[in-house]
Design a binder for these strands. Structure first.
Ligand SMILES: [Mn+2]
Ligand SMILES: [Mn+2]
Ligand SMILES: [Mn+2]
Ligand SMILES: [Mn+2]
Lengths: 235, 235
DNA sequence: AAATAATGTTAGATTAGCCTAACATAATTA
DNA sequence: TAATTATGTTAGGCTAATCTAACATTATTT
């Protein structure tokens, strides 16, 4: 059995690796993600290495083993399923789900998570647009870019958010933006990098920082916009 | 914020007090209930006293303070709501809910528990027939007796189970007994105290021990069989 | 009332998970 | 290349929650 804390570490390692597309995570990086000090990370790494969940050598980066990946993916699956449940069935808002799902993800019961997944009708994405691994560890990956990268004049569809902080999510909600909304980049201001975007016929001005945290699919390249990626065996 | 462990202690104290109908719990008794050693109980009691959740003097019994009761009742409410959710919405069986609810009860989110309660349409009893405190801390109490106390020839209705062990619950399930079933005590065997009972037209023989763990309402005294009891303010 | 059993307490140890402060190595910049 | 900055490690300390073993008090029998 994994402890609550070990689960958080494995999920974090899995997420950071996935985001970067490379199986190497740094001590400081992980510490920042988990709001801990690098020294604490080292203590825990000793334990995770002991248990064969990570591989790491002195002064080099951390890599998850296959078993470590499996466990990390499992927690990620639980987290996203719970978020979906809270959002779909209990009227939680976008910015409320994270905190509660962070706790619920640690409840260990295969039956529980599988039944929830059924109840939600096998969702492919969580409320933030992040993919949920299915029962075989397969993930529906979208080839998305950030709103900041969309060319002026182009239209796109919001499919996910990057940041998960409340301040960011509330900001997006205030714009009236929800997943699958169409966004058109109308204009870019040279001087301060602000973007004028059109949502539902209205023009809003947003910062570069905000645009970098919104994932979109361009409307003209949707044929090859998703693929199935096998992460690891969840059984 | 209470820790996971403190919550378990307060719930246990609250339950034991309630079952006994007296606000005094012993160290050893509590240790047994929580599967711990008496020495560990003492350590934790120091902390709970510090925080004003219990009152206790050297070599005497433990009493919950009002605030301690409130917290205990809150965890009990969460536990029973989760059990009901698992049973009603996710097809868990009688004997499966306990273990998972024991974990879920520690997720702290007022909104979560209130929304679940709505989703389940304000249930008054959990799958084991135990009452769920409502939002004001009111409980629907039934004046029940055990099946062992029912006179020969009398009929009654099963409203709850006492024990929560899997072996007991499975035993009851094997008899085809579910809550609200009518049971008639047909015969008592002098020699070994076994009872013959009739359920759905079939006769079964059951032990005294089993009968002592099944709560029933007698069919002829149903007018005054329940009352509302105010436990404590849950807000 | 004395002996015995039951119950409660204390001291001292252990483990998990975190910290700070000092130090070591690696990467970047001048 | 030398200095500086960033990153990673270690030693030593802290708290929460548990344990065992020894001891103290209270309750129950004889
Ligand atoms: Mn978590
Ligand atoms: Mn999410
Ligand atoms: Mn619990
Ligand atoms: Mn129950």
């Amino acid at each position: 059995m994994l402890t609550f804390t070990e689960e958080n570490y494995l999920k974090a390692l899995f997420q950071l690796s996935a985001e970067k597309g490379i199986d190497q995570v740094g001590t400081t990086e992980l510490a920042q993600h988990l709001n801990l000090k690098p020294a604490s990370i080292n203590d825990m790494l000793k334990k995770l290495k002991e248990k064969n969940f990570v591989e790491t050598e002195r002064y080099s980066k951390i890599t998850l083993t296959d078993e470590g990946k499996r466990r990390g993916a499992e927690i990620m699956r639980r987290n996203r399923i719970w978020e979906t449940f809270l959002y779909d069935k209990l009227d939680f808002t976008w910015d409320e789900v994270q905190e509660v799902a962070e706790q619920l993800e640690h409840v260990s019961s295969k039956k529980l998570i599988d039944k929830l997944y059924d109840l939600l009708e096998s969702p492919e994405f969580d409320p933030h647009g992040n993919p949920i691994p299915d029962l075989n560890g397969n993930l529906k990956v979208q080839f998305r870019k950030t709103l900041a990268e969309v060319e002026t004049g182009q239209s796109c569809k919001m499919v996910a958010v990057k940041e998960s902080s409340n301040s960011f999510l509330q900001c997006v909600m205030n714009l009236g933006l929800v997943l699958n909304n169409k966004i058109t980049v109308v204009r870019r201001q040279e001087f301060d990098d602000l973007l004028d975007i059109e949502i539902n016929g209205r023009i809003h001005t947003v910062s570069q920082k905000l645009a970098q945290n919104i994932y979109v699919l361009c409307l003209n390249c949707q044929k090859e916009s998703t693929c199935i990626k096998h992460l690891c065996n969840l059984n």
